[in-house]
């Protein structure tokens, strides 16, 4: 199956490991991955901050770049939510766009992707994956099949981590208070890895955990699923 990778500007720029893992995973599952190089940003930041016209022009551009693809995949619940849920009212119907776990479980119909990740992990479901896309238990089904992985349930997991895009700047204090509670829950699990399906939330949670030198590392779900016994995940070096 031929699929297009929607990298998201955040991951393309800051988290290339997540995207390399996504490519590796999709290819391992038999997909042919295309990367339309004209893509930049979906416009979510502009849209959510109240700059609708800027968002609209970026959305139109995105729709042109991905026009004609049968399946567009991104390892981000919020960027996919922007495209699949909000583009129709903003810039017209986009190409069919899937969040990674939706694509794996619904389209490829696979929950055991042959992954190996011998770590203690807790999972934050992220608001837009959870409530905008309704990915439900798909990430957990995938994680449950990962060999060596010890999944520790995250208490109050459905609470927002406080990122919210420009919310983290405009209401930095409230955002930090939300982050403090999220970090408390993550640290309480004793996990060494906190995972999620969205690098933006992980940047926020991970940024706080890093500031505290907490010893907990954020790892995107795609990197866990791409890791195998032959070629196991290694920490990113910058």
């Amino acid at each position: 199956m031929r699929v297009a990778l929607f990298t998201t500007c955040l991951a393309d720029t800051l988290y290339p490991n997540t995207l390399r893992a996504t490519v590796r995973l999709l290819e391992r599952l038999g997909c042919e991955v295309a990367f339309p190089e004209e893509q930049t940003c979906c416009g979510q930041m502009h849209y959510n901050t109240g700059y609708r016209e800027h968002a609209r022009s970026l959305a139109r551009r995105h729709n042109e770049v991905f026009h004609g693809y049968q399946a567009v995949i991104a390892p981000s619940g919020s960027c996919v939510g922007m495209v699949s849920e909000l583009y129709p009212g903003l810039a017209g119907t986009p190409a069919p766009t899937y969040e990674l776990t939706e694509f794996l479980v619904d389209v490829l119909e696979v929950t055991d992707v042959g992954a190996y990740f011998p770590h203690r992990v807790t999972y934050h479901p992220t608001c837009h994956s959870l409530r905008m896309l309704g990915v439900g238990t798909r990430p957990h089904q995938l994680l449950a099949a990962v060999r060596g992985l010890d999944l520790i349930p995250l208490p109050e997991s459905e609470s927002c981590c406080g990122f919210g895009g420009t919310f983290a700047l405009k209401n930095a204090d409230t955002s930090t208070a939300m982050l403090a509670d999220k970090m408390r829950q993550v640290l309480g699990t004793g996990a060494e890895v906190v995972s999620a399906g969205d690098n933006s939330c992980l940047m926020h949670i991970g940024g706080g955990l890093s500031r505290l030198h907490s010893g907990v590392r954020p790892v995107h779900l795609a990197e866990i699923l791409a890791s195998t016994e032959e070629d196991p995940w290694l920490p990113e070096t910058r």
Binding site: T7, A11, D12, T13, L14, Y15, P16, L19, R20, F35, E37, A168, L169, A172, T176, L179, M203, H204, G206, G207, G208, S210, R211, E236, T237, R238
Partner: peptide, 25 residues
């Protein structure tokens, strides 16, 4: 400022040497 609103409580990752698109090319 205004990035300090973020870094008052959180670290921020710097872009690595190579973006994903650089690696792809």
């Amino acid at each position: 400022w205004p990035g300090s609103k973020w870094t008052n409580a959180r670290d921020v990752p710097v872009p690595p040497k190579e973006s994903f698109r650089g690696w792809w090319r």
